[in-house]
């Protein structure tokens, strides 16, 4: 097990390197350091000297990948790629192009993100499983077909409408909670109710439908027939036999989603004005702050890889047939 985890972590290094290389190349293919200087300085102040000094100050005056002037290993290290991207491996995110410290930003903005994402995630899964179990009990009836239709209809509604509808009904018409905003102190939960609710409701269609399929797939297995032949009741079969087996595919689906907890709230955060990582990202994209984008992509990838490893580990917990080595 331990060996397995170590191996997976080693395997993560080339992947993260690839991720960095990709974002780096992508960015510099269309946007040379000169262009960056122009957009950061503002068109008014563009002189060759100003560009040069900006590049020097921000460390963009070196070659991209390979420095022919430097000797030995410095040929690889004295480059923009090495200095800007590889430092991320030491979790040294450096400063944003506008001079803010990215590490501090991320650590303060992490909490509001989690405060929204964790409850919607947990409640969402719980609600979906409950709804799906309920539906499975009505399997192969007319009601079942209509419920599935409703699920598909719910899936077909854009996320944006859930947010807009939620804000309009709950916050504006019924005036139950504030429309948007966030305070770290006091009654901060008031600001959380609506985002969480919207997140959960928007996910029911796809989630419950998916779990229903998983349950039904298990219900067709031979061991369910064995359980029936034993004389077990349908409810007992559902909870004691189908649910534990369906947990295996459910887990894979869930654990991979965990990293998106940090990022997933992109829309919710910007609609509800929550100062989390999602809106941080969005602002960075809008102001073309490469340093922040780079750091966030890096963090996102690390979380994804951790998610994958966690999935494998949780597999062994849910499925006795698997042993990792």
């Amino acid at each position: 097990m331990l060996i397995y985890i170590i191996r997976r972590l080693f395997y993560a290094i080339p992947i993260l390197l690839g991720v960095n290389l990709l974002t780096f190349t992508l960015f510099f293919v269309v946007n040379s350091p000169d262009d960056m200087a122009v957009s950061q300085l503002g068109a008014k102040y563009v002189t060759p000297e100003a560009i040069h000094s900006w590049k020097e100050k921000n460390g963009y005056d070196r070659p991209l990948f390979y420095n022919p002037d430097a000797a030995g290993s410095d040929a690889l290290t004295e480059t923009i790629f090495f200095s800007k991207s590889l430092r991320l491996f030491a979790f040294d995110f450096g400063r944003s192009e506008s001079g803010r410290d990215i590490t501090t930003d991320i650590s303060t903005r992490m909490w509001p993100s989690l405060a929204v994402a964790v409850p919607s995630f947990v409640v969402g899964i719980w609600v979906n499983i409950c709804v799906a179990l309920l539906v499975v009990m009505f399997h192969a009836t007319r009601l079942d077909r209509w419920i599935v239709f409703v699920f598909v209809a719910m899936m077909s509604i854009s996320y944006l409408f859930y947010i807009i509808g939620g804000q309009y009904l709950v916050a504006k018409t019924w005036r139950l909670v504030p429309i948007s905003g966030f305070h770290a102190q006091g009654q901060f939960w008031k600001f959380l109710i609506l985002p969480v609710l919207v997140g959960v409701v928007a996910g029911i269609g796809a989630g419950a439908r998916w779990y229903r399929t998983l349950f039904l797939e298990e219900a067709n297995q031979d061991y369910v027939r064995t359980a029936r032949a034993k004389g077990a009741s349908e409810i007992r079969i559902l909870f004691r036999h189908i649910l534990p087996n369906a947990l295996i595919p459910i887990l894979t689906g869930i654990v991979v989603l965990i990293p998106s907890l940090f990022m997933g709230g992109l829309l919710i955060e910007s609609f509800f004005g929550i100062p989390g990582l999602g809106s941080y990202m969005l602002d960075a994209i809008k102001s073309q702050d490469f340093a922040i984008v780079r750091s966030m992509v890096f963090i996102g990838s690390i979380l994804y890889i951790i998610g994958l490893i966690l999935t494998d580990i949780s597999y062994t917990w849910a499925d006795p047939r698997l042993r990792l080595d």
Binding site: T226, A229, K230, G231, H241, P244, N245, I248, D319
Partner: peptide, 27 residues
């Protein structure tokens, strides 16, 4: 059906062809 459940397993029992798939893999 409820009475049938007491018949199954208590009066009449069954065994199946493919034992591997007839057993619950996680129990």
């Amino acid at each position: 059906e409820a009475d049938m459940q007491t018949v199954r397993g208590e009066r009449v029992a069954m065994i199946f062809q493919n034992a591997m798939s007839a057993l619950n893999p996680v129990q």
